[in-house]
Design a protein around this nucleic acid. Structure first.
Length: 588
DNA sequence: AGATCATGCAACGCA
DNA sequence: GCGTTGCATGATCTC
């Protein structure tokens, strides 16, 4: 499907940048509040599937073959309560849910995802002379460089066979294998073989990343992130003319199953969706793999002025913080690490002059960008909900707008949107498994990447969320995506219902809870009723970057085998019948 | 052990 | 008495 034109740049520099997105909640300690470190370490890979451990031999051969036994876990169909979902059920569910024919479902089935054969892949086995990335360039003590761009023109030839990780842990192997699987279609063994690192570089980087196993993990993450991002960048270049953006369908969780550990390669809040040409390999579970063919480079990031900053990409190694970046108009790869707090820059320019210029650009960019995105202040929360041109409008009047309507549109007064008048319409498998949507695929004439809707969070509704209390407990990650709350009374937030364009005035607040907080969305009763949401359904909250407004979408979940227990856990049944989800999940 | 989160339930306000 | 509010409790998960 893809050609693997993948070559590493002669020079790879990684730079520290100003924190473009400071911790929105100063009450919460930044676990990496170390100015000297550019690495954001959430330290959590989640529970990795039980893959066979990779070789730790001195040849660094990471050849392995995953076992089918790991498929359920890997693909997200982690057996719940010891119950293993049968393969055929998965295929059947997939086919039914996504309106796919059986063959396609088979093709998308989980074992297929495991047919990747990274045999022979040798990450650290270089091929001939090439320039190497020296992670030591990450660690520049120069104060100015700390804040802005650090650029090195490191050229080293490698002739040593010192590319080994001396004592690679099983975690490293798992991480790498996970990554391989996530990118098997887009990154070839040749790509991987072309990575070369000096032993001293590895050791130094590992030490500076905390040393030991953790340091090694961090290093591996960085390397893989770079491989992926660079490759995606390349791919993006070959995909010119193709741009796809639909932030309304987050990549994950058509049927969120919080039982599943987040996949270490996909940020739960990743605001991207799959390429519609590539059926969802990861349908039916949460926190799945970033499908290899679903390149983040297929998306565009646009700032508040409409400046196209290029294609975002992921760092698959950070599971719970947005980590990604985008190539800007200067054709420089940029990478945010962890919540955007740290910044890597993977550029090719080599001269100091170029660095100065880029630094100046970065200053301008962040001064603008930060002003726009970093303002999580209370007074921001009186959100404008307008239909001005710059804002995403859920009214489907503009044929070039994304056609989105709530899955619970039956309760909406709006008729289904008209077909998109684009050159090519694609019936995209609905990630919710509920209904099809028509989404412009090829960029129609005059079409421009519009709308800057960003996925923030989602919540599988519990009984208490859809009860008559009129409040929804939000996951704690809300505090990182929604405005910072100074007082427990919280703030009023206008939420535009994507399904109906109706504005709901909700209250976002928190309760003190032990040493933490519980975040709530109140005044949700009407919204829930209006959308006919029941336990097991879920809500998704987005933000419109341009208008700093919030949008909410209620998604009803069909009753299928794979989503019988939509809750995070199989907690004990409560006396109020809160767990009678099977009936509660019946769609209206 | 600590964090998260679902929800029980007491306290409170109001008709 | 009833509905609402907000804290407390306990189950579950993660480290």
């Amino acid at each position: 499907m893809y050609s693997f034109f993948f070559s590493f740049p002669l020079n790879l520099s990684i730079q520290k940048m100003r924190d473009p997105n400071p911790n929105p909640n100063p009450k919460l300690e930044d676990p990496m509040d170390d100015e000297d470190s550019i690495f954001y370490d959430n330290g959590d890979f989640g529970s990795l599937p039980d893959f066979p451990s990779l070789s730790s031999s001195s040849t660094s051969s990471l050849s392995t073959r995953s076992s089918s036994a790991s498929s359920a876990s890997w693909a997200g169909f982690k057996p719940e309560n010891g119950e293993t979902l049968e393969k055929e059920h998965q295929i059947h569910d997939l086919a039914v849910d996504q309106n796919l024919d059986h063959d396609l479902a088979v093709d998308l089935s989980l074992d297929h995802d495991l047919t990747v054969d990274p045999m022979g892949v040798d990450v650290f086995e270089g091929l001939g002379d090439m320039d190497m990335w020296d992670p030591s360039s990450l660690f520049d003590d120069d104060e100015e460089e700390n804040n802005f761009v650090h650029e090195e023109n490191q050229k080293e030839k490698r002739k040593e066979e010192d590319q080994n990780i001396e004592n690679p842990s099983e975690d490293l192997a798992k991480i790498f294998l996970e990554w391989l699987k996530s990118n098997k279609e887009s990154i070839s063994p040749e790509d991987l073989r072309s990575i070369k690192l000096k032993r001293s570089t590895i050791e130094d980087a590992t030490r500076r990343l905390g040393g030991g196993k953790e340091g090694m993990i961090q290093l591996l993450k960085l390397i893989l992130a770079w491989v992926q991002s660079h490759h995606l960048q390349k791919k993006n270049c070959t995909n010119q003319g193709f741009s796809y953006q639909n932030p309304l369908f987050p990549l994950h969780a058509p049927f969120p199953n919080p039982n599943l550990n987040p996949n270490p390669w996909t940020s739960p809040q990743t605001p991207y969706i799959s390429n519609p040409t590539v059926p969802h390999v990861l349908m039916g579970y949460e926190g799945g793999v970033l499908p290899s063919a679903i390149s983040p480079s297929d998306y565009q990031m646009i700032d508040s002025n409409g400046t196209n900053f290029g294609a975002p990409y992921f760092d698959p190694s950070t599971p719970s913080h947005f980590i990604g970046g985008f190539s800007n108009q200067y054709n420089e790869n940029q990478m945010f690490l962890g919540n955007g707090e740290r910044f890597l820059k993977l550029g090719a320019s080599a001269t100091k002059e170029a660095r100065k210029k880029r630094m100046a650009r970065q200053r301008r960019f962040f001064s603008h960008h930060h002003n726009h995105h970093g303002h999580r202040h209370q007074n921001q929360h009186h959100l404008r909900v307008s239909s001005e041109n710059n804002c995403t409008n859920t009214n489907q009047k503009n044929p070039n707008s994304w056609v989105v309507w709530s899955s619970s549109s039956s309760s909406s007064s709006l008729p289904p949107p008209p077909p998109v008048q684009s050159e090519t319409n694609f019936q995209v498998p609905d990630p919710t498994g509920i209904q099809q949507r028509q989404i412009p695929f090829d960029r129609p004439q005059g079409w421009k990447p519009e709308k800057n809707i960003r996925f923030l969070l989602q919540k599988v509704l519990k009984q208490s969320d859809v009860g008559n209390l009129g409040r929804i407990v939000l996951p704690k990650e809300a505090e990182t995506h929604l405005p910072e709350l100074d007082a427990r009374d919280g703030i009023s937030i206008a939420m535009e219902d994507i399904g109906t364009s109706r504005i709901w005035n909700m209250r976002y607040r928190f309760w003190p809870n032990n040493k933490s907080r519980m975040y709530l969305l109140e005044n949700t009763g009407d919204f829930v009723r209006s959308n006919g949401l029941q336990e097991g359904d879920f809500i998704v909250i987005y933000s419109d970057i341009k208008c700093t407004k919030y949008m909410i979408r209620g998604v009803k979940v069909r009753k299928t085998e794979s989503v019988k227990n939509p809750g995070k856990t199989q907690k004990k049944l409560h006396g109020n019948g809160a767990q009678s989800s099977s009936s509660a999940m019946e769609p209206n």
